[in-house]
Write a protein that binds this DNA or RNA. Structure first.
Lengths: 251, 251
DNA sequence: TCTTCTTGAATGGCATACCATTTTTGAAGA
DNA sequence: TCTTCAAAAATGGTATGCCATTCAAGAAGA
């Protein structure tokens, strides 16, 4: 990875000669660092609870500490990391209560988005969600959990996007990001897959009928299933500690 | 102001001799700069749409550009300023559509908070809200718009706080901050003061009865009144430009 | 052997310096 | 007088260095 990034850096420095498009505003380093950190957190490259050492991570990412620190402030505001004065940053590790709070809030946001979507969506928008739904069914048929997870996320994102409320879209994205890791893990061991599929059928039906009230109710409850699965997973993890936790105990 | 801040700075540097309490974690500069900027934006010291010159503002605040820039990243994430690559930061200036989106979202958040509050609030919590309500009535009786505004904000904040959902509290605060300026101005010219009071009576009644459904409905609609007043104010401003805008035209 | 204190290494916080891009200004030409 | 272009000033972006605080290791004492 380090080599690729070095090449990328070199490419960036070469560019100024002939900018392909004057419209390209040249994204600041801070922003791209923030994106990469988000990915690293989502993919557990930076595991929850782990301390982020500025100098080490800056070197890994081939940037100086300044943009890294600015990116960390952003992630802290987004709730993905926590900052302790003079003690550095650690990747946020929400406890069950926080996860439940986040899921409930997300449910409320999705319910609102669903209502608006029913009122404002174009036929094209509805067709796109329908298409994603079929893609998800395809992943389900193949028992491809990863594809299922991603398509599922896309569907919810698409519904929110068609709400047309920019602040809602923004806020939903933020809350969702805080839950990404948890939901990803939950998806991997989901024992209620068929239930989720059924709920999605209901979601699509309400949406195509433009029944905002019904859709809102379904969406708000939909994450209840997620919570049931997540809390079950957490319980299981508590009873039977993972290898990682056991290894940590050995030190 | 510069002198006070210089003194404050000196005080900060003197402190390390004998820390009064070891429990005081010494707030980072970035955080306090962010707070001050938030205040400056809320109070129109930094007017909406205005460009923020890093070097100038840093000097005013008696800090270097580093913590200032970190603070700006935070405010940008919060939606209070907008960052344009290589072109700097400007104070966010939401247009009517964005304001309406924000108000609707805030309404949904408050409705959710109200539901939870009805379910979870202690008698003590309810008593506190009731007390704030009477304080607000006092301000209304005195036609003290500023006191009314602040108490009003406190009431809504208190209800959300008793919801017990940390993410909701956080998110609500953020959306509310984005609307602070607009609502402050709106309050100053509100022609529907009596309507707002009536709605607050209803809010208190539903809360004391712990009727979550009713409270949610009222709170969600409550901001509709705010929107009516805000949009009326914006319309008026468009018809009859303010002195500030006129002065700007002269240049 | 365990506890406590001291000392040094490591880390984060902040300021400063330099570079690239953008904006402004003013001079030349139409 | 207006437009265009070029040079310079200003501004934001990034890297680096120094300082204060925290953390870790080891020595001294119980």
């Amino acid at each position: 990875m380090t080599e690729d990034e070095a090449l990328e850096l070199a490419a960036r420095k070469r560019e100024p000669a002939v900018p392909p498009e004057a419209a390209a505003p040249a994204e600041p380093l801070t922003k791209s660092v923030a994106s990469r950190l988000r990915d690293m957190i989502a993919q557990d490259v930076l595991p929850a609870g782990e301390r982020i050492r500025e100098r080490a991570v800056a070197e890994t990412l081939q940037v100086s500490r300044t943009p890294l620190r600015e990116a960390l402030k952003i992630l802290a505001t987004e709730g993905l990391v926590e900052l302790y004065p003079h003690r550095g940053a650690v990747v946020a590790d929400p406890d069950p209560a926080e996860i439940q709070d986040l899921l409930q809030l997300l449910g409320v946001l999705e319910a609102f988005g669903g209502e608006l979507a029913c009122a404002r969506a174009s036929e094209q928008d509805l067709a796109e969600v329908q298409a994603l739904h079929y893609e998800m069914l395809a992943a389900y048929a193949r028992k491809d959990r990863l594809a299922y997870f991603k398509t599922n996320q896309q569907i919810h994102k698409a519904i929110i996007a068609t709400s047309g409320n920019a602040s809602l879209i923004e806020t939903h994205g933020r809350i969702n990001a805080q839950l990404y890791r948890v939901r990803y893990r939950s998806n991997a061991r989901n024992t209620r897959w068929d239930v989720a599929i059924k709920e999605h059928e209901d979601i699509l039906e309400a949406l195509s009928k433009r029944d905002g009230t019904a859709l809102a109710a379904i969406l708000r409850g939909h994450l209840g299933s997620t919570w049931a699965n997540v809390s079950e997973g957490l319980q299981q993890a508590a009873d039977q500690p993972s290898r990682a936790a056991a290894a940590a105990d050995e030190t």
